[in-house]
C-alpha cells in the first residue's frame, strides 16, 4: 500500500484507539473532585470519594457481595463449563455442534427478556435477593465463556497423549490429573477469569433480582448514577479501570513471553 494511505490509516486508527480508551479516562479526574458533583470540570482535589468507598457500608457490602458471588460463580461455572467442553469436543461432530450452539445461547438472549423471566421464577421460589439466586443466574451466563475458552485448548490437544498414559497403566483419573489438566490449564484458568468478570460486571439480571438486603456493586453504581451525582461512582470506576488494565497487561505479557520461548 502506498505510504500516503498508510499515514491515513495510522491517523484513523489513532482516532479509533482514542475513542476506545479516552472517554473512560474521564472518570479519573472526576474521582478526585472536591465537590459532591459530577459536573465537569472538577473543582479542587480530595480523596474523600475513595475514603467513602472503603468506609461507607453501602459500598463496602455491595463490593463484598459482588466478590463472594463472583468467586463462587468462577468455581462452579469453571467446573461445569470445563466438563461441558469435554462433552462438546469429544462427542460426535453433529451432537457436539448442537450442544455447543445450545450452551452458548445465553450470550445472544436479550438481557432484559432473560431478566424478567428469571425475576418471575425467583419471585415464585423466593430466590430474589439471595446469593443462591445470583450464583445460579450468573453461572448460566458464564458457562458460554468457560466453554469457549476451554474448547479452544481442547481442540489442539493431542488425545494420543492420553492413550499413551493409559497404555502405561495410568487410571482415567490419573490421566486427567497428570496429563490432560496441566495441558488445558491455560484455557481453564482464562475460563475462570472470564466467569469471574462476567459475574462481577453483570447488571441487567442483577437489577431485577436485587433486594435492599443484597445488592451487588454494579447495582450500587447504577442506582448511584440514577439517584444522585455522588463522585464515589467515579472513584469506583477508576479502581475498576486500573484493576482491569493491570490484569489485561499481565495477561498480554505472559502470553507474549510464552509465545517467545
Amino acid at each position: 500500500m502506498p505510504s500516503f494511505s498508510r499515514i491515513l490509516l495510522g491517523l484513523f486508527c489513532l482516532l479509533v484507539a482514542l475513542l476506545l480508551l479516552a472517554p473512560t479516562l474521564v472518570v479519573i479526574p472526576m474521582s478526585f473532585n472536591g465537590n459532591k458533583s459530577l459536573a465537569f470540570p472538577p473543582v479542587g482535589f480530595s480523596w474523600q470519594w475513595y475514603d467513602n468507598f472503603f468506609t461507607n457500608p453501602d459500598w463496602t457490602t455491595s463490593f463484598t457481595n459482588s466478590l463472594i458471588i463472583a468467586l463462587i460463580v468462577a468455581v462452579v461455572a469453571t467446573v461445569v463449563g470445563t466438563l461441558a467442553a469435554f462433552g462438546v469436543t469429544r462427542a460426535a461432530a453433529r451432537t457436539g455442534g448442537l450442544l455447543r450452539a445450545l450452551l452458548i445461547t445465553p450470550m445472544v438472549v436479550p438481557g432484559v427478556v432473560l431478566a424478567i423471566g428469571i425475576y418471575a421464577v425467583y419471585l415464585d421460589t423466593h430466590l430474589v435477593g439471595t446469593v443462591t439466586g445470583f450464583v445460579l443466574a450468573h453461572t448460566m451466563l458464564a458457562i458460554p465463556f468457560v466453554l469457549i475458552a476451554v474448547q479452544a485448548n481442547l481442540e489442539v490437544f493431542d488425545r494420543r497423549l492420553e492413550t499413551a498414559a493409559a497404555s502405561l497403566g495410568a487410571g482415567r483419573l490419573t490421566v486427567f490429573r497428570t496429563v490432560t489438566l496441566p495441558l488445558i490449564l491455560p484455557g481453564v484458568l482464562s475460563g475462570a477469569l472470564f466467569a469471574f468478570i462476567t459475574s462481577f460486571d453483570e447488571i441487567i439480571v442483577a437489577l431485577f433480582i436485587t433486594s435492599p438486603y443484597l445488592k451487588t456493586l454494579p447495582v450500587q453504581i447504577y442506582t448511584s448514577i440514577t439517584r444522585d451525582a455522588d463522585p464515589t461512582v467515579a472513584a469506583v470506576g477508576t479502581l475498576l479501570f486500573l484493576a482491569t488494565s493491570l490484569i489485561i497487561i499481565a495477561g498480554l505479557l505472559i502470553g507474549t513471553r510464552r509465545g517467545r520461548t
Binding site: 472517554p23 474521564v26 472518570v27 459530577l38 459536573a39 465537569f40 460486571d201 448514577i225 489485561i248
Partner: peptide, 30 residues
C-alpha cells in the same frame, strides 16, 4: 500489543463504568 490493549481494556471493563464516563462527557455540564 498496544492496539490490542486499547480493545481489550474497554471489552472487559464494566459496561456501567463506561456508560458513567459517557454520562460525564455528554451531560449539559459535561
Amino acid at each position: 500489543l498496544a492496539l490490542i490493549l486499547c480493545v481489550l481494556v474497554p471489552f472487559w471493563l464494566s459496561g456501567v463504568v463506561r456508560t458513567l464516563a459517557w454520562v460525564i462527557l455528554l451531560q449539559d455540564s459535561g
